[in-house]
Design a protein around this nucleic acid. Sequence first.
DNA 1: CACTATACGGACTGACGGTCCGGTTGACGA
DNA 2: TCGTCAACCGGACCGTCAGTCCGTATAGTG
Lengths: 200, 200
Amino acid sequence: MRADGARNREVVLAAAGRLFDQVTDPDQITMDHIAAAAGVGKGTLFRGFGDRVGLIRALYADRSQDLQAALSTIDPGPAAGDHPGPVKVTAGRDHTGPGPAERVLAALGAMLDFKLANSTLTRALENAGAGSPFDNELYNLWHARLTRIVAEARGPENADYLAHALLAAVRSDLLHQLRDWPRARLEAGLSALVDAILPS
Amino acid sequence: MRADGARNREVVLAAAGRLFDQVTDPDQITMDHIAAAAGVGKGTLFRGFGDRVGLIRALYADRSQDLQAALSTIDPGPAAGDHPGPVKVTAGRDHTGPGPAERVLAALGAMLDFKLANSTLTRALENAGAGSPFDNELYNLWHARLTRIVAEARGPENADYLAHALLAAVRSDLLHQLRDWPRARLEAGLSALVDAILPS
DNA sequence: CACTATACGGACTGACGGTCCGGTTGACGA
DNA sequence: TCGTCAACCGGACCGTCAGTCCGTATAGTG
């Protein structure tokens, strides 16, 4: 990979991010806008990212790194052994840590914050033509984790569907619809939902 | 309104309905396709329905009449006194009828059936650019009703949000994602969700 | 310095939603 | 039965946008 290629990739992502943040409706941002804002030809966009969805996905991946880290702290999950490197064990705090409801609420709360802070971008990805919110890598990862937690807390019966329902409660377009609710109100509702589904 | 206008309206709705039923991805159906299938000019479509969303909305309204009736049977709601005609009172079965959980489950179940039977059309409306699933008339009606029922069953605290969460659990694209689940599994999950939120 | 794979950019294409307008026809009064 | 006209019709046309193509420029290499 050539140096200018990598540099341009960053420039494009930065410009696209800025544009999406300035706007409410995701498809006010066209590929031509992004190319112009990045000072780059359109071809460069499509060579680097494949198509519009690819670009949005890349931007999303970029921004959600912090979120991923936060989520992994809350629930290291079965993916902990993925790297050949030394497995980091949470020292001092054993399996009697926070209960399922707390962990789930923490995770959904983190997603909530992320989606509020990246509203337009998130909606761009979750509604983008294609397979919609579900071919999203993060969605599948978190659906799997939530399913496991729910299953531990109340048995495998319907855990799968309930995990979907929990994630549906923080979908970005719903949050956009409730955009003038104060954060505390959303959090309270979420908390009520989680407490209802998971044994306190 | 002229006779040929009304006739064409029906023809167009029928053709569009047929087309959406033949397909999985809603935007495989273009306005030109519909016009051609109806044996009508494109101008007629836009004069009669305003724009693509208007046409889809009209088709949806057409098909959801049965659903609306079913839902109103389950919960006549505060809208019962709308007509000056005689108010129909459910005879013999007083206010100690089915509990909140039963009523909500029945309503969501009816929506589930409708959305399964009209999958592509429903997704076309719920994702169609604009204000998405929420400027839908039926959505608002049912959010209001569910909010009331939830509030009666567990107090006004968060009833609003929980009603959104319940509706989010039957969103058409989620159902599409779970398209090869048998109906019973969906129903079971829904039932578990409703029972968790509403006191049994 | 020559050479080539890589990257660049913007003109071009195809598809689609939506508009426009000259021609047609149903409704209705005489 | 006929004349009149507003409502209606259809499809050519337009603007926009994602995505492609290809001639040109340049970073990296021996």
